[in-house]
Design a binder for these strands. Structure first.
Lengths: 216, 216
DNA sequence: ACAAAAAAGGGTATATTTCCCCTTGCCGGA
DNA sequence: TCCGGCAAGGGGAAATATACCCTTTTTTGT
């Protein structure tokens, strides 16, 4: 058996059913072998640190994982092993995450409802040409470039204020919690309402949750 | 080949990579064959209605799907094909969903990070004995029975009001939107604040999002 | 027909929102 | 060096919106 001629793939995914099944699917393509599987970014990085000379052709990296998630893992890879090729896998089509994975060096981003045919094409494409982007992802990249100019950036204090605003505290209570005059808080609120194009505290709460400033 | 002696399994899951891979995994167990795969509850039900005499030993049903999700599909099965055995598959350990799937007749509930060994055991168990519950699920069932007495139930109008309260509308606007007097809205609010043990509209918004009454 | 809900109202105290103005300190260009 | 600008922090006052009482009228189910 000429196993050593096959492309070497690593799967990092906490869904054991998925990762083990996916290994079988990849095997069925013929040209690839799955040399390792890990259930989160932490154990994967541990492995890389102890086996830094292993030949790896491609990494399939899940985005949502416990312990160390795909994004953090991608950041580590960017800093420590930028040579490795990664395709991110996720059920999640959240634009922000996708953009972050790609800016951190992912060579492709596939949703888990991708067909096996496209999946195979993506693997081949990334190994051969270095990248593979679906229309969804390309669209987001373009969208991103076009809206990069007027992007909203929140200061640290504003973030703290927003978090407090997403509780049942009154503004007065928030002010004393943050050791500021209620009037300053008032100023924060006004400038945020203006910046975020909202009109009420309810709008602020919805914005905060939508943009993951606070969690529910 | 004695294919006709194998147990017949159907997979319903929108994640094509997963469902196709899972089919390979199931095949590798030896005693089973995947006779059909569907990508949402709708096409699965369509199939059942046109092939109501097909022999099916087990259905693996994903919970989160587009078009018609696992819960709705389970409800249809309960009403129309209570004879079919279903194992629900999900990444989601939300207690409410799990309980609902089981009260609608699911014979098992597995998270997708289950190991293939447990998965195989669960399949065998459901086909042979009729059910399989992990500790997680059993724990929830017990928990459920113990806390069933004082559960909060919201009326239809209250739900509608809550949805409106999660926007930047004022109560006055909500009243006219719902064709009610502002005072009636006032009453809704008060009774909800009381029932949900909250003190402000912000609290109501947070409750609504946490309990999936509204989506962000 | 009667009790229980649902709907609506009155009144009042706070909270929130909005607008416009003031100080202080810091930074960059003329 | 001086000066304008600008950002952060704070203020007054007024208009609305919210929150919390408690009462009355209408519907509704049985």
């Amino acid at each position: 058996m000429k196993t050593n001629l096959k492309r070497k793939i690593i799967i990092v995914d906490d869904h054991l059913l998925f990762s083990q099944s996916l290994e079988l699917l990849i095997k069925s393509f013929g040209d690839y072998e799955v040399i390792e599987r890990f259930e989160n970014g932490k154990v994967f990085i541990d492995y890389l640190e102890e086996n830094n000379s292993t030949e790896i052709d491609l990494i399939l990296l899940d985005v949502n994982m416990p312990v160390l998630d795909g994004l953090s893992t991608m950041q580590w890879l960017k800093d420590n092993r930028p040579d490795l090729k990664v395709i991110a896998l996720s059920v999640n089509d959240d634009e922000e995450i996708i953009i972050k994975m790609i800016t951190n060096g992912a060579k492709g981003y596939l949703l888990k409802d991708t067909s096996p045919e496209i999946f195979k094409e993506a693997i081949e494409c990334v190994i051969e040409k270095g990248f593979y982007f679906t229309e969804l992802v390309s669209g987001m990249l373009i969208n991103k470039v076009n809206s990069d100019n007027k992007k909203i950036c929140l200061k640290e204090k504003e973030i703290v204020f927003i978090k407090h605003a997403c509780t049942e505290m009154t503004y007065k209570e928030i002010a004393s919690e943050m050791c500021l005059s209620p009037k300053t808080i008032d100023g924060y609120r006004e400038s945020l309402f203006d910046k975020l194009e909202i009109k009420t505290r309810i709008g602020l709460v919805l914005y905060a949750i939508k943009h993951k400033i606070v969690f529910v």
